[in-house]
Design a protein around this nucleic acid. Sequence first.
DNA 1: TGCATACTCTATTAAATCTATAGGATAATA
DNA 2: TATTATCCTATAGATTTAATAGAGTATGCA
Lengths: 135, 135
Amino acid sequence: MLSKKTKYGLKALTFLAKRDDKSPVQISEIAEQENISQKFLESILLTLRKNGFLGSKKGKGGGYYLIKEPQEISMTQVMRVLEGPIAMVPCVSLNFYEKCDDCPDENTCGVNKLMLQVRDSALEIYRNNTLADLI
Amino acid sequence: MLSKKTKYGLKALTFLAKRDDKSPVQISEIAEQENISQKFLESILLTLRKNGFLGSKKGKGGGYYLIKEPQEISMTQVMRVLEGPIAMVPCVSLNFYEKCDDCPDENTCGVNKLMLQVRDSALEIYRNNTLADLI
DNA sequence: TGCATACTCTATTAAATCTATAGGATAATA
DNA sequence: TATTATCCTATAGATTTAATAGAGTATGCA
């Protein structure tokens, strides 16, 4: 299941990408328009900024804004930052690999075999979609 | 993330499918061989039985056994029973559809658009894999 | 300088879900 | 009738997610 964090983060990014100009938008405006708890959204936008997707400006006239073109923001990056591993099990994760402690051999593990395919197919979707494609 | 329930369930099914004969196998044997908590596995096998994947026999010589051929057990069915919806958001779920209360229009929602693709690609993988393919 | 604005950051709580365990009930076998 | 092994419900413990609170910091403007 997709977390609210990811869902809200994607919605916020989409909201910003839809706008014509790149002037800062206040958290409160995004929260209101997208029906998101403002405080919760606050923390999400913060991590998006820390990971290089957004810029921010404090004080009057401040807010958040995209610092890259929508078509340059791959869903792979966004998903990894917000949702974490794309793989459903750590033993098939490219960026968050971890061995299963209950599994003696990954090469003969059916779960591994299946989840490897699922990871690859999801990855292909994310690679083929940028923020611009969500609009 | 794949739940332990699903992971253990798949492992148990695979374990049974690997065997040549179809005589009942005790929970304790599967649990030991696959490094799964016996009590937890008990409840998992129970739901697999209730959903038509396994048969069971009580008393001495009892246990669980497959009641269909491995190549007839689609991963789509297994995943839905153990893990629940294949979609990552309810608004793109075929079997567990639910409208998002924060989203005014699914047709213009970027999250919906993306997750629809992810669902379809996952579904294709599950459709193309039977229990026999995991061995 | 002083004030209002809006993001920054940490900590905490509340809720939900997942994982695991306990223990008695039921059915089959010998 | 004793033994074996599944059946079933309830519950406890752990983890994760979602949301909130509140003080701190930087900015713009009069």
